[in-house]
Every structure is written in structure tokens, then in C-alpha cells.
């Protein structure tokens, strides 16, 4: 996107949420362990097209790209992901409630 026209640079800053830091950590760890490379991350990001940059936040794009690379690498299947995401959704209405399985028993 370098060189394209765009508006003023937004200067809002947010503290990184726990889930965002976890996405970042997962990317670093997957790279260290050789599951996929930062080039794989970038390819998946670029494949999303420009709409993704308008509709998704930074770490939303990252988790989508991390997930795509892991599925391609055969770490888990699309079915396993879908089943787990559904299960996570049943744990509670907020990230705090859904973030770990122990939370269900609280």
C-alpha cells in the first residue's frame, strides 16, 4: 500500500488487550518453532485484500493469518477449529469468561 493516497495519520493509541498480546505471542512462538514464517504471515495478510484493512483491526488480521498458516501446515484441521470456536462461544458472553476452559467451572 506504500504510495497510495490516504487521509491524515490517526494518532489514537490503545493499550493492547490481552487477546491481542496473545496473538502476537503466538505468532512469535510459531515462528521460533518453525511452524511457519513471517513471510507466510505476510502472504496471508496480503491475500486478504484491501477490504480487510478497512473492516478488521490489526490483530484480527493477524489471528486470521496465523490460523490460515497453521491449517495449511496441517497443525490442526478446519473442522477442529470450527468445533473449538463453537465450544468457546458457549462458555460465556465475554472474552474473560470464554478465554480458558477452567472458567466454565467457576
Amino acid at each position: 500500500m506504500g504510495g497510495q493516497a490516504a487521509g491524515p495519520v490517526p494518532t489514537d493509541q490503545h493499550d493492547f488487550a490481552l487477546w491481542e498480546k496473545r496473538v502476537d505471542a503466538l505468532m512469535v512462538l510459531c515462528g521460533e518453532k518453525g511452524l511457519f514464517t513471517v513471510d507466510g504471515l505476510r502472504r496471508a495478510l496480503e491475500d486478504m485484500g484491501e477490504d480487510a484493512f478497512e473492516c478488521m483491526s490489526y490483530y484480527e488480521r493477524w489471528i486470521a493469518a496465523v490460523n490460515q498458516n497453521l491449517i495449511e501446515a496441517g497443525i490442526y484441521s478446519l473442522e477442529e477449529l470450527g468445533a473449538r470456536m463453537e465450544e468457546v462461544g458457549r462458555r460465556g458472553a465475554t472474552y474473560g469468561e470464554a478465554q480458558n476452559r477452567e472458567a466454565q467451572d467457576d
Binding site: 487477546w19 484480527e60 497443525i75 490442526y76 477449529l81 470456536m85 465450544e87 472474552y95
Partner: peptide
């Protein structure tokens, strides 16, 4: 009352994905 902004808003699709990906890994 919930006090952590990242945890007290409605769970999003992408947050569910992060949790699922992390657990599967």
C-alpha cells in the same frame, strides 16, 4: 464488576478464534 476493557466486552469472532487456535496449539 468487570474492570478489564478487553475482557468485559462481547466476545468477538476473532477473539474466539484466538482462544481456539491457542488451545489447539
Amino acid at each position: 464488576h468487570p474492570y478489564r476493557a478487553d475482557n468485559d466486552t462481547a466476545l468477538t469472532y476473532w477473539q474466539r478464534m484466538e482462544i481456539a487456535v491457542r488451545e489447539l496449539l
